[in-house]
Write a protein that binds this DNA or RNA. Structure first.
Lengths: 174, 174
DNA sequence: TGTCAGATGATAATTATTATCATCTGACAA
DNA sequence: TTGTCAGATGATAATAATTATCATCTGACA
């Protein structure tokens, strides 16, 4: 198992390719193609630093000074919903704490946001031997498995959203 | 590689064991042992659902109705700092977006919170074959590698905190 | 060109978390 | 047991990120 930092030049080609057909995919998803939307996806694809909404908004405003931060938030969530972007951060919008200090990982239900501990025998040993990230000194790692729990699979009749792993939607307050 | 949901009865024994020496470890870390602190760690160890501060506060208030939510927030962060708890959620307190839809994972610097994409050849194939989580239908997974980047390792002279992987501290606004 | 679902901008509201500050209390020494 | 004090606590204000509201605007398609 070999670890490799994704390089920037390949990323630029990828961004160009994604932009080329973006408008088509928007219309296919039933979404109007607006200048704001184009500017936001362009800013996102042009960044390799996993920016937050405010950063993207600042970038977009260099050409479209009138764009609202609320629009950027809404549009980024929309992009996640149609599978044109991903949220790097977790499925929860408030901090969750764990008293279990033994090595373990997490399964998260993308619908009810429930979290369960899991152990994956062999994984930590495998990763421990494999992770050599140039430019970084690794300290640890954590694996999050996105899933649908049985309760939600059974009770959840409401039509599944196109990209539930995108991390769209609010955390239930439990 | 075998995946196993961590079961609750073993967890109860683990909690008892952790409670037994908690006060001693607090004093060893130079922290006074207060009833609030005891109640908060007890509530955390008694929960298997990775609760957020408000949930723990509600639990604690059943016995100590006067406890402030601010204290719970502060204490949970303290527990992470001395290595008695972990934050399940990511190192960032605002949503980060990624335009890269190709399968990849992330290295995060625990000091400057920079995120880089990494590819780990073989990992996804390995996991894809291994993940069978009873009670869940897996949809995907993501690996976050906590690390220190070279920039921070060199420039960062300030004494390292005892548990930097605990996710304590604020996200720089960049 | 007209229609309209959906998008946008401005702004208020909400939510989680942290800061402030006066007061209190474990821990330790006398 | 008591005195001292660093650090903890509770109450509350402040901050920050995100979402809701709503009047207006505009792509898309007929």
């Amino acid at each position: 198992m070999k670890l490799k930092i994704v390089n920037d030049s390949r990323r630029a080609a990828y961004a160009r390719e994604r932009m080329a057909e973006f408008a088509v995919r928007c219309r296919a998803a039933g979404l109007p193609v607006t200048p704001q939307r184009m500017a936001i996806i362009e800013a996102l694809l042009g960044a390799t630093d996993h920016p937050r909404a405010e950063k993207i908004c600042a970038e977009v405003r260099r050409r479209h000074p009138h764009v609202s931060l609320a629009t950027v938030h809404r549009t980024l969530e929309t992009l996640c919903r149609i599978g044109e972007a991903r949220k790097v951060t977790a499925l929860h919008d408030s901090a969750r704490y764990d008293g279990n200090l033994e090595p373990h990982h997490h399964v998260v239900c993308v619908r009810c946001r429930r979290i369960r501990d899991v152990e994956i025998a062999g994984l930590d040993a495998t990763l421990g031997g494999a992770i050599r990230a140039p430019g970084f000194k690794p300290l640890g790692w954590s694996l999050e498995i996105q899933a649908i729990c049985d309760d939600c699979a059974n009770s959840g009749e409401r039509a599944g959203r196109s990209s539930e792993t995108g991390g769209v939607g609010k955390t239930p307050r439990n």
